[in-house]
């Protein structure tokens, strides 16, 4: 759901950048504090960012017949928490704009708001609220909600930029939401399923990392062992 370069009017691009700025500053301050406390974490953060980029470049089969890319924001939020995801997501989006031409530089603020802020926070909230039902249902909810929120926020951004001539922003929201729903709802389900598969494998192959990141509780792995 990247908004391409030049798609948004300049005033909207600036407004979304301003809206994203406080979250990004909060993320940068959190990151800075973490790096001061444990400088060795910068390499793990580098690996996490590279992982986020690769995750968003994976092609997944979509129910509509085509293939799509996951946003990776849900998994990122579960693994690295939303403040870190704001920074990692921004860097990933910047790299996607400059290395793959996915998204743009003037639309970076809007894309950051939907994919690195709204998606991860909503996904993380869904993950936390479902955690008592078990890890995998919570992970599915996190990835599904993050993907769907990203798509909804992008639709709002487009509706605000291009209101309908007759029915205004509400009509435009119905139009953009309707068009993208065809691909995005199946994609959100697909991303949820892929994330569950991925975390299920990680639980067996990288349990120590999941404990370190706070996704698994040590007692659970002991019980599993």
């Amino acid at each position: 759901m990247h908004i391409a370069e030049g798609h948004l009017p300049l005033s909207h691009a600036v407004a979304w950048s301003v809206a994203a700025a406080p979250f990004l500053v909060h993320g940068a301050v959190t990151l800075n504090r973490r790096l001061k406390d444990s400088p060795e974490d910068r390499l793990l953060l580098g690996a996490s960012g590279a992982f986020c980029f690769v995750l968003s470049a994976l092609k997944i089969p979509s129910v509509t017949g085509s293939s799509s890319h996951p946003t990776g924001t849900g998994l990122g939020a579960v693994l690295f928490r939303p403040p870190a995801m704001a920074v990692l997501g921004t860097v990933t989006l910047l790299f996607q704009a400059l290395l793959l031409a996915h998204g743009g530089l003037t639309t970076l603020g809007a894309n950051v708001f939907s994919m690195a802020i709204a998606g991860p926070w909503a996904g993380f909230a869904a993950y936390l609220s479902m955690r008592r039902f078990g890890l995998l249902p919570a992970v599915f909810a996190g990835a599904f909600v993050a993907d769907l929120t990203t798509y909804c926020v992008t639709s709002v951004q487009l509706a605000l930029a291009f209101p309908d001539a007759e029915s205004g922003v509400a009509g435009a929201l119905a139009k953009f939401g309707g068009i993208f729903a065809v691909t995005q709802i199946p994609l959100a389900v697909s991303e949820g399923l892929l994330t569950v598969l991925l975390v299920r494998l990680l639980r067996t192959s990288a349990a120590a990392d999941l404990i370190r990141l706070g996704v698994l509780r040590p007692a659970r792995t002991e019980a599993a062992a």
Partner: peptide
Amino acid sequence: WRSLGGLGSAVFVRSFDRAR
């Protein structure tokens, strides 16, 4: 689907291992 899940988890494990 199974391969994609395996790919994602293997990339995670290897990138963290490399960083360490």
